[in-house]
Design a protein around this nucleic acid. Structure first.
Lengths: 355, 355
DNA sequence: CTGAAAGCGCTTACAG
DNA sequence: CTGAAAGCGCTTACAG
């Protein structure tokens, strides 16, 4: 009698038949081995191995009514801040045996909604959303279906759900304060994308710092965007001014913008960074360290955000029904001083030595 | 009579009851609307809207036997090359209505296997895998279950599946050739992580270029890794040499390594880049442009790889059973000249003007 | 054009 | 400790 050829995708009933037990027993071996006699379990496990059985998670999810998966929708994986959030969320999920699936919206709100719907339809255990702009309709839709959702790095007005935020007002404040304490008095705030919530908050923080410092002035410059080239072109505009008319301290609302400015100043002007102009970025992206000058910046820990979000989600998942109260975790930023503002950095020391 | 409160997750049978039809009709309205009378369809759609029905994709997958989802496992999202692959795969999937889910292995082979299993258990339509190291067991396990898989950027020995590769030997060759053609004769190859397949191939290409160029010498330096700090510390080592004993052209096997080297040379030596030492990177990562000097590099288009992989997968998905032949697509790299090798870059011009 | 019914592959009380 | 059976929410021939 020929040995039956192995099915490509053997099911539990194939295993059951092969081991001479019922499918309930196979299920028990997998999910509650303590309920099964050792010898039986052994036999079943052998069959599983022989047939190459892989539990069909789709059927399992349908039967149990929920998956062990959490879906994370990220606005822009090209920004390392979002990659960091994914790292954090993964760490936060691992502990609870949840599995993290990622969807990259790639700055496209329609695609973001698609992913939200995808995870909704997949009946994931919960959703983590790190949006860039208002996502109210998507969030409400998914919540209406009873899906759990935690929003990262965005304060969605009028929507009641758990949220992880960074105090972005404080980000701006710390950046400007750092410049002022270093003796800078003609500050500039470089920004773009006004509709982007963190930009507004950071601007408010910069203003507060300036207002509380007598004699310090603030110039607000629209860079037209948050990328490296935007910084470059601002430098080009500034190059028309005399040195004394340039700001002596700049807060760039994003690291890449700051890097572009520094590179542009080097190319187009005689102003030196940091001697003539100190520059602070925001976010502490991966690019903050590898740029033309190591960039002083205000750190937003994406990893911490991701972890906190996962924790909030798990909290909500495990809460007794009706007991859960949504809450908002606000993380505090911190300034990281590098070469682009003050201090005899190693760069300067070595240059001086060489001269 | 009180209106029944809306169920959180109404099912098709709820919709059917509400619309006064059978669930088969509801299903048809959703999947083959042309088979349903316009009036009936309208009524069903109204019920769907009223109840807030969302198709349960888990049940659908179980019933149809396969999902419309493809799972992509990335070795390291911190490396922008992998993010680019995700972009490409997304573009490639969109056209066919497939939905791309991402799993980040974060350089952890165990986690990579977990994601492979996760997608396997989820019965995704296909898997895209961009590994860093040998992943034979994972690939074979998933293939044994009949799951389709395409491997990116890694030539997995002895495993028969569709693959997208970049000609990494050519990457090394182009980089070295560029230096040689610019008149450099004391080349160095900077690498680390010898077990990493592309590193080996690029080394071979560099050697070939050098061997075919009389009078050109090659020094192979182990940087101990592929990151920025590794480049820095190589520069520190080199700083002990006299200028004339330094290489005059360096191929760094990865962009970040090249950036680190350039920064280190600036900090620790008097050698100028590119005047005294030309440096070429490999990969054209996002960091290649924002670094201390805009880096000449050899481009590997991650986006193209991702697209090609998605296309191969779709080809295999749609092939008649038994007809499909696995194939390997090899993409060709191209050199991108920036400031770190030769040529009067804008940087130099402007500096000269300022002097 | 519409509906009754079987089936996808699991899980889970419930008996025994 | 083990098994028969119902059920999760869809899809899909097959009748009508």
């Amino acid at each position: 009698m020929p040995v039956p050829r192995a099915k490509i995708n053997p099911s539990m009933s194939d295993v059951a038949r092969h081991a001479g037990v019922s499918i309930a027993t196979v299920s028990n071996v997998i999910n509650r081995p303590e309920k099964v006699a050792a010898a039986t379990a052994e036999r079943v496990r052998a069959s599983i191995g022989e047939l190459g059985f892989v539990r069909n998670d789709v059927a399992r999810s349908l039967a149990t009514g929920s998956a062990s998966t959490v879906g994370m929708v990220l606005a822009d994986l090209d920004n390392s801040l979002f990659v960091d959030m994914a790292h954090g969320a993964q760490q936060g999920s691992d502990a609870s045996g949840l599995r993290l699936l990622l969807g990259n919206a790639a700055c496209d709100l329609r695609r973001q909604d698609d992913y939200l719907d995808l995870f909704d339809e997949a009946r994931v255990r919960g959703v983590l959303l790190a949006p860039m702009e208002d996502s109210r309709s998507g969030i409400e839709r998914i919540r209406a279906h009873g899906r759990l959702i935690v929003v990262l790095n965005f304060q969605q007005p009028d929507v009641d759900c758990c949220t992880v935020l960074v105090d972005n007002e404080q980000v701006g404040y710390l950046a400007a304060r750092h410049l002022i304490e270093g003796g800078r008095s003609r500050l500039a705030f470089l920004a773009g994308r006004e509709y982007y919530q963190p930009v507004q908050a950071r601007r408010a923080g910069v203003r507060r710092a300036v207002q509380s410092a007598p004699g310090v002035t603030l110039e607000e410059i629209d860079a037209g965007g948050l990328e490296f080239p935007n910084g470059l072109s601002v430098a080009r505009d500034l190059s028309a001014r005399r040195l004394g008319d340039l700001p002596d301290g700049v807060v760039a609302v994003a690291d890449e913008l700051g890097n572009g400015l520094i590179e542009g100043l080097r190319l187009e002007t005689e102003a030196r960074v940091p001697q003539d102009i100190s520059v602070v970025g925001c976010e502490d992206n991966r690019t903050a360290q590898g740029g033309p000058v190591a960039l002083t910046t205000v750190q937003l820990s994406g990893v911490e955000m991701g972890q906190a979000a996962a924790e909030l989600l798990i909290e909500e998942m495990t809460a007794d029904p009706g007991v859960h109260r949504h809450r908002t975790v606000v993380l505090h930023p911190s300034l990281i001083a590098r070469d682009s503002t003050f201090g005899a950095s190693s760069t300067e020391l070595l240059r001086a030595k060489g001269a």
